[in-house]
Design a protein around this nucleic acid. Structure first.
Lengths: 245, 245
DNA sequence: CAACTAGACTTGTATATACAAGAATGTACA
DNA sequence: TGTACATTCTTGTATATACAAGTCTAGTTG
């Protein structure tokens, strides 16, 4: 019943031997044969079944553990892990939609809309050379007339050439960008900061008061589209996410 | 010329030998000594420097590669990867693991561990009657001795009766809870606040300075297990997430 | 019966060794 | 000059071995 691997030589050709063991285990789990908490064969057992050394069998189990597929416990054994949530919550949502969903009126103030040269930080984030031309916009979003988000955005002009000509009082940058350059990926970082002078004035809050700052790099197939810094007054905004296991 | 291993016994005591190598490499990178794209010593070089076998040095490099800290290329060498954002937003992760993953030492201070009665807010969150008995704990988590998280937690005693008897210096509440009551779902809310007196003192920061506050309700099959408020100093913590579309 | 102990598992760490395979640098030869 | 080859780095795969350490079971002992 056990599959016998014939070739003695190590660096066979196509794929390493531990990959075959990983594939086998994955197949059992995906077929439902091995449910969550099922105890998978031990290292020694797998080594025997697949005719490899224990260290090779171990590698298969270790990698699957790192990948969240299995769980191991010294002395007990190796078990199939709970299925992962995988679902990406915390969608990249349009602030205007969010305000509308609350039944409030949306508005904005465009503080800046210009072409400038990329600083080192911006260049790295957008994958451009330092000093390259980039579009730069600063917009304050209003919820029932009250500032709710300070948006500073750097956009890649090679991917979105008509950015500066847009009417952002009609459609937000986010809305426009997702239409012209469908997103494939986004890096998001959340941190707490004290508002500096510029932000405080724009959001009509005291300088130094706690704000939620979100950095977001959005990428489409062609490259990094845009790099935005979104600042919310701490007491007027919350980020929510629901995770499932 | 071959490395002479003095101590014959393998499992020394505190931490494995490859961990020391990982920590060393991390330190060089974090100090700026080794910038992005810097070529790190080869497996053989590290093996010699740290007086371990090549396979042990290799393990350190491999794990750091899996963690996104390094990049390897057969025939060329091992290089420092582009810096990536910290913390992971989506997964409900153990703060102790997160600290350990950074190669830092974890510690905590238990400020409170008691049984009390549920306020209205707590009762609603846990699905209990107002005034019902709940467990209440306050713990400060340390990263290299520096406070990095203030954790205030209310736990449902009907689901986790032995909560108060746990030794939280050994396993964090998160760790313990996920063991005894496997999670099925979690609500997470992130906001920015100014630190109040209690939090400021516990985190050793100035009162009023910006903090990331995370509310998290964790549910298992049997009901709502726990309701936690996690406060991070804004300048010592970031939440990151990578979303795919 | 309870408590301890010894063994038989398990995973975890560490080493020494071998060969495969990618990449760079030199050197010899046409 | 330039191509081909050998050398020497590097990382990647695989094995055999040893001991450490966690967990359970069965047997022994008080």
């Amino acid at each position: 019943m056990s599959s016998q691997i014939s070739s003695t030589t190590t660096g066979a050709s196509s794929q390493p031997r531990y990959a075959a063991i990983k594939a086998h285990i994955r197949a059992q789990i995906e077929s439902g044969e091995w449910p969550a908490h099922f105890r998978v064969p031990s290292e020694n057992q797998l080594a025997q079944d697949f005719n490899v050394s224990r260290m090779t069998a171990r590698r298969a189990l270790s990698e699957l553990t790192d990948e969240g597929v299995l769980m191991r416990s010294q002395g007990l054994g190796t078990f199939v892990a709970e299925p992962v949530p995988a679902g990406s919550l915390l969608e990249v949502r349009n602030i205007a939609d969010e305000v509308a969903a609350r039944g409030h009126s949306y508005g904005n103030r465009i503080l800046k809309l210009e072409q400038t040269t990329a600083s080192n930080e911006v260049a790295v984030a957008l994958g451009l050379a330092e000093g390259a031309a980039v579009y730069h916009s600063i917009i304050v979003h209003l919820d029932n007339g009250l500032p709710i988000q300070f948006e500073e955005r750097y956009t890649n002009p090679t991917l979105v050439p008509e950015y500066l000509q847009q009417d952002f009082s009609a459609a937000t940058p986010n809305e426009y960008l997702t239409r012209v350059a469908p997103l494939t990926e986004a890096d998001t970082t959340v941190e707490a900061i004290g508002a500096d002078g510029t932000v405080a004035e724009a959001l009509e809050i005291d300088s130094g008061s706690a704000c939620l700052q979100i950095w977001r790099r959005t990428m489409s197939r062609a490259g990094t589209v845009s790099f935005a810094r979104l600042v919310h007054p701490g007491n007027r905004y919350r980020l929510g996410a629901q995770l499932r296991f």
